[in-house]
């Protein structure tokens, strides 16, 4: 089984490789794990951000990451997605390295993430062309995405001619084009108004229910964080640890009415409680 196999540690030259059995160096992953994070170290501006973080993110679930300001929610996700280097540690996807894994990433700032010189449809096709697919295969996949997203606006337009919600929809379609194993979303709603937030949330849930793709969402809004999630990863102040990895098993599809469901209310309340406890905790007492 791949997750029992101690894998080579990506490390700096100065760091000794730990024996797989020594201390925290070897932790078997929980069943149905997709992403394993082992022995993750990261310093930020000279101060430790993550020290020996171990984490198992489940396969085919939506995980939201939430925590106090500056705890490094985005940093954690960006390290997993390979946008930021780790100081030390290992991250595997079903036992594979990032290089062997297809991922999708949706940025917070859709305006800066899309290519304004390409029409929306060519933005969506970009990762497919990068993979070297032929024109007919690209078209087939793009048409498939258009159908499953029930797109009603003109994708022949340029991104700057679309509304914010439409642009973020294009970003999500582009991220999903290459059929990623994991879809990362960095505060995907924070630049959208509430109407668009509800719309994109529904689309994401729809896509998730159709494809079962593993999703990791960073959010600074507790309602957003809980609403879509199967699991809410609550982080502490820095040096950041996992405060709680909470489950939220409300049946799908969840609708805006689900926000008054007792399970949603109670999960959100207990997440808020953990959050407030962690915000109040002095950064020193947790060291």
């Amino acid at each position: 089984m791949s997750w029992f196999k101690p894998a080579p540690v990506r490390r700096c030259a100065s760091v000794q490789q730990e024996s797989p059995r020594a201390g925290g160096g070897f932790l078997p992953a929980a069943p149905h794990t997709h992403i394993t994070v082992r022995g993750l170290y990261k310093t930020f501006a000279g101060a430790p951000l993550y020290e020996n973080l171990n984490l198992d993110l489940p396969k085919g679930k939506i995980v939201s990451i939430f925590g106090p300001n500056g705890c490094g929610k985005s940093t954690l996700m960006n390290m997993i997605a390979g946008l930021i280097p780790l100081d030390r540690g290992e991250i595997l996807f079903d036992g594979k390295t990032l290089k062997e894994t297809v991922i999708g990433y949706v940025f917070q700032n859709y305006r800066e993430a899309l290519f304004p010189w390409l029409r929306a449809v060519d933005n969506i096709a970009y990762p497919l062309r990068r993979m070297g697919l032929g024109a007919s295969e690209v078209k087939a996949r793009v048409d498939e995405l258009i159908a499953s997203f029930e797109i009603r606006f003109d994708l022949q337009r340029y991104p700057y001619e679309l509304s914010g919600g439409q642009q973020q929809t294009v970003c999500i379609m582009r991220a999903l084009a290459a059929r990623p194993e994991v879809l990362f979303l960095d505060e995907p709603f924070s630049a959208l108004d509430y109407e668009m937030t509800l719309f994109i949330r529904e689309k994401l849930q729809d896509i998730y229910m159709k494809s079962g793709v593993t999703m990791v969402i960073v959010s600074h809004d507790l309602e957003d964080a809980v609403f879509l999630a199967d699991k809410v990863l609550l982080l502490t102040r820095r040096p950041t640890r996992v405060a709680e990895f909470m489950s939220f098993d409300l049946a799908r599809p969840r609708t805006p009415a689900s926000m008054s469901d007792p399970l949603f209310v109670s999960t959100k309340a207990s997440a808020l409680e953990v959050f407030q406890r962690e915000v109040k905790a002095s950064p020193l007492s947790s060291a």
């Binding site: 997605a81 990433y105 990762p127």
Partner: peptide, 8 residues
């Protein structure tokens, strides 16, 4: 970064 994530 977007281009890199998409495999460029």
């Amino acid at each position: 970064l977007a281009a890199r994530v998409m495999g460029a």
